[in-house]
Design a protein around this nucleic acid. Structure first.
Lengths: 187, 187
DNA sequence: CTCCTGTGGCTAAGGCTGTTAGCCACAAGC
DNA sequence: GCTTGTGGCTAACAGCCTTAGCCACAGGAG
């Protein structure tokens, strides 16, 4: 039997993909092994169990999301930057719901934890959005938390089919960006 | 051996309490049975399996949260109502994280589903908050979704220890209420 | 007061998880 | 060409949810 030639990065990437397709609870060691053409225990040669796998998927997701938002913001300012960041974030969560779901509730062990690095990169992207508005220094942390809560809440609820009634969801998102933009400009 | 005298409502209530204490993934049929002084299979006489239990816990949580927010809003208007609703919501999620977590991702089967009834009651409470502002009719749905995203996002992130850095979380929440109030009044 | 029935407990068992131990063969390096 | 480390494997176990089937208690009918 020839070796499958697996790799930690391959396993984590396949796990992330499976989480997106089957939902986070649908990500199981057995299913992942089967998809990689390998028996379940073999995964333990590359990953330290399910918890470790989830941590690594979360780190991957944060890095990817941070990159996406950072790239979207680049070269923009004010309302443009806000809209670009919000759209990039929402698009990422909708395209990768399982990946993103794995990030909530993960606590980084230290400042060098890839988890913390990825989170920091995304935070920086949102911080640069605020930089385009004249937000007083002591308020930036609060504003940052508001942006995060808003984006996280909206995208999470939408990906869980939490918006069931009539109005168009895209329209609501645009409205929400407008509302935030007006509020930030008025400071 | 005397009967334990269990009841569907008792089982659901104990399940909700256990979910709050041990976290939603910590709510297990075995643990719940043990806490009720009964063997695991006995629970199936009162509840149709774990999924059914989770649905009922979610319905209970929505009813309780809706009541709490509705009661907080009663007799208030404008900024007062907004602050009262937001605080009641956040307090509920922080006090009952497991209960609340069970509500996300549950889809009601029909308009008579207790799940839908509870969700509707909470929605009405927030709708009455908006009633105190002069929000144009076509915008109310969008504003409602914004309030929901903001409250859900903030409370969820906070209860998952998502706000790690320095600034005071209570202060951020007040800031966020202020920001929303100013935005709504300016419409 | 006695019997009958429904209900709410129980034991036993099966299929699914994640996980560990221990084996064995391939692939690369001296 | 041999040696060694590594990446597969099988076997096994604990814990989870769930079902089947039994049995004794509680309450109502006669």
């Amino acid at each position: 039997m020839p070796r499958a030639g697996l790799d930690r990065a391959t396993v984590v990437a396949a796990g992330a993909a499976l989480a997106d397709e089957a939902g986070l609870p649908g990500l199981t060691m057995g299913l992942l092994a089967q998809r990689l053409g390998v028996r379940t225990p073999s995964l333990y040669k590359h990953v330290d169990g399910l918890d470790d796998l989830l941590r690594r998927i979360a780190a991957l997701a944060l890095a990817e999301a941070g990159d996406a938002v950072g790239l979207a913001v680049r070269g923009r300012a004010g309302r443009d930057a806000l809209a670009a960041a919000a759209h990039a974030f929402r698009a990422f969560v909708l395209a990768h719901p399982g990946r993103y779901a794995s990030t909530v509730g993960q606590e980084p062990t230290g400042p060098d934890d890839p988890l913390a690095v990825g989170a920091g990169r995304m935070l920086d992207a949102f911080r640069s959005v605020l930089h385009g508005y004249e937000v007083p220094e002591p308020d930036t942390d609060h504003a940052l938390r508001m942006l995060r809560s808003l984006c996280h809440g909206f995208a999470t609820l939408e990906s869980a089919h939490g918006f069931r009634w009539s109005a168009d969801v895209d329209e609501s998102f645009e409205w929400l960006i407008d509302f935030t933009d007006r509020g930030l400009r008025a400071m």
